[in-house]
Structure formats: C-alpha cells, structure tokens
Design a protein around this nucleic acid. Sequence first.
DNA 1: CAGTGGTCTAGACCACAAT
DNA 2: TTGTGGTCTAGACCACTGA
Lengths: 239, 239
Amino acid sequence: MSQPRFRNWQAIQDEVLRRIHARDWPPGHVIPNEVDLAAEFGCARATVNRALRALAEAGMLERRRKAGTRVALHPVSRATVDIPVIRQEIEDRGQSYTYRMFSRKIARPPVSIQARLCPDSPVDCLHVTALHLASGVAYVFEDRWINLATVPAAANQNFDTISANEWLLATVPYTHGDISFTAEAAAGAEADLLGTARGAPVFVIDRTTWDHDRAITTVRLSYAPGYRIRTSVGTPVSV
Amino acid sequence: MSQPRFRNWQAIQDEVLRRIHARDWPPGHVIPNEVDLAAEFGCARATVNRALRALAEAGMLERRRKAGTRVALHPVSRATVDIPVIRQEIEDRGQSYTYRMFSRKIARPPVSIQARLCPDSPVDCLHVTALHLASGVAYVFEDRWINLATVPAAANQNFDTISANEWLLATVPYTHGDISFTAEAAAGAEADLLGTARGAPVFVIDRTTWDHDRAITTVRLSYAPGYRIRTSVGTPVSV
DNA sequence: CAGTGGTCTAGACCACAAT
DNA sequence: TTGTGGTCTAGACCACTGA
C-alpha cells in the first residue's frame, strides 16, 4: 500500500491531521504503529516518530508505550505564552522603563503565602513591593515574597536599581513554576498606585517558582487597566 | 576533551543549561556547533540536535543556519496553556454542564468584528450568543460571530443542543488562531447573565481562528468572577 | 561560496506497560 | 512476556544565509 510517498515529517503530519479531520481516524481511535506507518508512507520510522511526537506535543494525539497512539478524545487548543522580564516587555513596546520600590523588609509571611513558599515550617522571607512604569505611567504593581532559606543572597540585595523580578530571573535558576491568570478588583493601595479607581478590573498574574523541591519566590503582578496578553495557537497544519 | 560522556539528549540539555546558568555561556554567547559538541559529549550529532532544539523551543537558545546557536539575550518563561472545549472544562471540574442559547441571527457584523473576519469586504455572518453553566451556575458567556463565507454549513445548525464552541471545534479544522486574555468590567447585559454586579471584573478571552487565510470565527468569552487560568512553566531541567 | 542547522535513513537497543 | 514508543548511532544530503 505504497502511497505517493511522503518525503518529510511535516508532510506526514499533514496527512495524519487530514485523516483525523476526515474522521478516518475519529477521536479515541488507535492509529497504526510507527513501523506500519513508515512502511505505508515509504519513509524511516524515525520520520514518522518525529511527526507523531510533534502532534502529541500539540495535544492532537496521546501516545503510550505498548498501548499505542490514539487520537485525543478532547481536542484542545494549546497556546504558548511568553512571559518576559517586565523591563524587556516595556522596552519592546518602545517605551522607557522606570522602576520604583516601595517597601522591602524581612518577615514571616502570612499563612496564604507560607502555604506556597514553606508549607512545612515558617521561614524568614523577604517581602518586596514595587511599581514598574512605562514612559512614566504605572504599568504593573509587583508584590513579591522571596524564600531566604532558598535564596539567602537576596538578603544582600536592596533592589533599588534592579527589580527583584529582573534580579531573580538573571541570578537564580529554577526548575519549574506555577502560573495563573485572573481578573480581580483593584484593592485600595493597589488601585491608587496603578492610577485607577478602586474596584476597577485589573489583570493579575500569580507565579511561584521552585528549584527542585525548594520554593524560590511567589509574586503577584497586578497590571494597569488595558493590559492584554496576546498569543496564538500553533499551526499544527503546515501552511 | 572527552567529558564523562553524556548518554542521552536530556543529560546534554542539562549540561548546556548548567553552562548557561554558570555564565560559562552568557546571554548572547554563540555556543559551539553541533559537530563540535557531539565530539565533546561523545555522542551523535542527532542527539545534540535533539537537546538544542528542545532548548530553542523553550526559549533558552536562538538558532539560525550558518549563524549558529546563541544563548537567548532575554530569558523568557514560556508557558503552554491548554484551552479546552467549555463543556469538557466544566465536566473535568466534576460539575454538570448545561447550555443555553440566547440569540442566533444572520447579519453583517459591526466594523470591529468585520475587521477581524472579513477585512476586504463585508459578508454575512452568523451571530450567536449563549451562556454555559456549571451545575446550574453561570460559568461563561459566549458572544460569537461565524463567517458564513468560510463555514456555510453553520447556517444549517441551530445550536440549540450543541454549542457553537463545541460544534466548530469538532467540525471545522483550523490552521491557526489568535488568542488574547484581558480583565474587563462587566457590561450591562453580560453582568446580569453572569450573575454579577455591573462593572465587576470579568476575565475575557478573545479568540479568532483561520483556515489558511480565511477567517472562520471570532469569539469573546467572558467568565464569571473567580475564573482562573492555571498553567506551569516547563521543566527545562529534567528532575 | 561555505558553514551551519534541518532532516532523513536503516538499523539497533532500551524502557515501559498491557496482557 | 511481548508489543509499543523512546532513543541513539553513523552517515548522508539538503536548505538557508552570512560573508
């Protein structure tokens, strides 16, 4: 059953997608294994593997050893979001970046923060609040706790010229992190600093990062009204 | 210069990341080419390629033919966000899904929508508004325009049992899409349907999808208060 | 033009998990 | 136990792009 012959992994990917959309392979269907597909497509197994692995990363297929490869039951749009350093984000918009720190003190965090940074036992943390401005206008308010047990060097940084956001990303490698996006009503002080009315909708990013099993920092970034995260969903089908 | 010998692409990835974090290879630095690295690591070039390609996809490296591979100047956190079908999203939370359509009519869209769906010339579109409920509680309000020039079959769907969200994802393949996230104040009717106060912060997803160069649909999803998108930043370093 | 990454091949061995 | 995907190898050719 030698088809016209597929020369590269993207052509194979397109053909697999075509069969999925044509319902030749409906959701849940177990598709032929790599050896058989390679024979059908007239290519090496590694090429089929490349195509199927890309589709699995895109969420179209689910692959398990021995069980084989099946079409995902619930198609999802998988978007990749880049979260840059704040200074870079502002300068990329062609605006000038300024930074103003408001507070910096070492303390035991409240329980809600403690649950994220040091669930086992309370430790000293560095609490920093600051405002990032774009061309002199409030852009995002940063409320950050840094685990001094994990990052003792942070205690020697005063963060008056370089933001904690930037210093941490450049200095402390992390293995993984949690991120969440919400819409919240601006609280009192936060609203004033962002130059908006209290209760106005603000876009909030909560992020916690770890180095292996040790929490590094947790931060709440509240963006001034009008902030928008843009992204795109990949192009599973080439061209 | 045979190092201890790196056996797999993840070990190579870890070693490259170690050198980046150790500033052996600072941001902007052009690292050795694949052939040299393969010789140093004692493995095949394909293995080095696999490791470097993964790091490039994660945003840590920038690769260009002839120019070589360099450490990214501005480290970014690249998170992947899954955007599931709404029914699935609700059922995954262990809640029951119900759906209620409010309006469905064919019309020429307003200019703001027209700019996204048919920038060249106005065409007939199907405008659908509906509410998705989780265990009987308003979850998200859907305000959608479907380009009938691209998807004529939509005109025959009444969307009273299956939502446009679900029907489109299951029926119409797309090649790419734009997505954006914002926090906005609930407008009048929207606020009433979502069961929240007018002006309350709502999380909004705007999405437009295309099939090649033909726009399929554009939708605004406004989520009831409390909605949160969770994701995580990859684990470039294995374990 | 020439150096780099992008990809393909044919074969091999391994790791995992369903049976 | 055994079938499947996961990966590695050594070599080859190609495509892009900087000089």
